[in-house]
Amino acid sequence: MATREQAMKLGCSEVLEVEKNVPSKYSEQIFNFLLVLDFEATCWNKNECSAPSEIIEFSVVLYDIKLCKILNQFQQYVMPFEYPKLSNFCTSLTGITQKQVDAGVPIGTCLLLFNNWLKDLYKKHKFVFDSKDADKKQCAFVTWSDWDLGICLRKECKRKNIPKSDVFNKWIDLRALYMEFYNRRPKGLEGALSEVGLKFVGKQHSGLDDAKNTAYLAGRMISEGVELRITKSISN
């Protein structure tokens, strides 16, 4: 008697029905990698100042969808020029000090440093942006709302006449997909994490911590069936 038949006769084995052709939620995704981005910018209390915001922290993490893991990170403090002195409100909210931004780099230099970091990632992980080639590993920027790339970076580069790479012109607004999929408006990033059973790790309004937590939220949303797609596209 075959070993399998003996085991079944003795009650040591059971037959499990496996549902076939069930696609993985991860394999259904268009993208292999996510560049999850978060900026912190100059800000003031209500009625204190109406000046445009300048980026003071530029943070991005590379998230591997299949591995559900952050592979690399970029963080750079940026020196504001239009209003170089941070408000007490800004420091209290973000935790970023005057000393950190004074030791930072201009936004143009920050973009060059980020571009060099991105080139190293291209070489290592072989991903592309916005390609129709299904054989290529796909990557997209992810933000929590359209503010970072749609307003903050775009307007600052325009005011300061700084060239901006086309890679920043398309992104996934994770907040928009969250509201669409769950049919509810979360109370910020922390609220969204809490609603799907996650806890915010680190300090809120720290650009790097916000980027990491947004990546973790993206991973949870994917596991629950959200299909990521580009939600916003702009011209320079």
Rank of each mutant, 00 (worst) to 15 (best):
T3L: 05
M8Q: 08
E14M: 05
E14S: 07
V15T: 02
V15F: 10
E17L: 01
E17T: 00
E17D: 01
E19C: 00
K20M: 00
N21D: 13
N21T: 11
V22M: 05
Y26E: 03
F33Y: 15
D38M: 07
K46N: 10
S50G: 06
A51M: 13
I55T: 05
I56K: 08
S59C: 14
V60M: 11
Q73S: 15
F74A: 07
P80A: 03
E82Y: 15
N88L: 07
N88E: 05
C90Y: 00
T91F: 00
G104V: 08
P106K: 07
I107Y: 11
G108N: 06
L113A: 01
L113S: 02
L113I: 06
F114C: 06
L118D: 07
Y122H: 13
H125R: 11
K126A: 03
D130C: 01
A134R: 15
D135L: 07
D146I: 08
D148M: 02
I151Y: 05
L153Q: 04
K160V: 02
P163D: 01
S165F: 08
F168C: 07
A176G: 01
A176N: 06
A176L: 03
E180G: 03
R184M: 08
R185N: 13
E190W: 10
G191M: 07
L193C: 13
G197T: 06
G202Y: 03
Q204T: 12
Q204M: 09
H205G: 02
G207P: 08
D209K: 13
T214E: 05
L217Q: 14
A218S: 14
R220S: 08
M221Y: 15
G225S: 10
E227C: 06
R229I: 11
T231H: 12
S233D: 09
I234T: 13
N236W: 15
N236R: 15
